[in-house]
């Protein structure tokens, strides 16, 4: 039988939910013998929009871009360490641009079979404007998407993974 999931990608955005998603991705990759990728997108489109709408100054855009790049490295290093502890090799990838577009592009580029994202908001909004980038990506990627819910259970699964 053909293995349906050979490549897993987890999207990391610096939130606790995305780290939980990474733990679940590590457990799944170990169980399934799948290759594991972690992606962080430096949201340069949002930075440009914030300047366009005068919420950010030009200097602020540059400062926050540097901060985002630093965060990208820090969080990807953290996920690499989480994977290393469980003996799982991981390919980390930093992209720049619009988050949902970059996720879609990387899924295609690496022929990802399963995208894992962190838990979405429990709260339903009346506003379309408040659908976040992970939700947009979920709608647009070409592969199956798994939402990692249940922080405590996932933590236990990660901790017990041999």
């Amino acid at each position: 039988m053909i293995r349906p999931i050979k490549k897993i990608m987890v999207y990391i955005d610096g939130s606790e939910q995305s780290i939980t998603a990474a733990q679940y991705a590590i457990v799944l990759a170990k169980t399934l013998g799948a290759d594991l990728y972690a992606l962080y997108v430096v949201d340069t489109r949002a930075l440009a929009e914030l300047v366009k709408y005068r919420i950010f100054l030009d200097t602020e855009q540059e400062e926050y871009r540097r901060d985002l790049e630093g965060d990208a490295q820090r969080y990807l290093n953290h996920v690499r360490e989480l994977a290393r502890k469980k003996g799982i090799p991981i390919i980390t990838e930093k992209a720049m641009g619009a988050v949902h577009s970059e996720i879609k592009n990387k899924v295609k580029e690496f022929s990802i079979d399963l995208l894992i994202i962190g838990e979405l908001s429990h709260i339903r909004s009346r506003r379309d404007e408040l659908y976040n980038e992970a939700e947009r990506a979920m709608r647009s990627v070409s592969c199956p998407v798994l939402i990692a819910k249940g922080e405590e259970k996932i933590w236990d699964l990660y901790e017990s993974a041999e």
């Binding site: 955005d13 610096g14 939130s15 962080y40 949201d43 949002a46 930075l47 929009e49 914030l50 709408y53 919420i55 950010f56 926050y64 901060d67 985002l68 630093g70 965060d71 969080y75 506003r127 404007e129 408040l130 976040n132 980038e133």
Partner: peptide, 24 residues
Amino acid sequence: PPDVTGPHIAALADIARLSRSKAL
């Protein structure tokens, strides 16, 4: 806080999108 830049930018971007809705 200084170490959550990603979510910080995402929240500001949400506000920017909301602010474009004149009716809201």
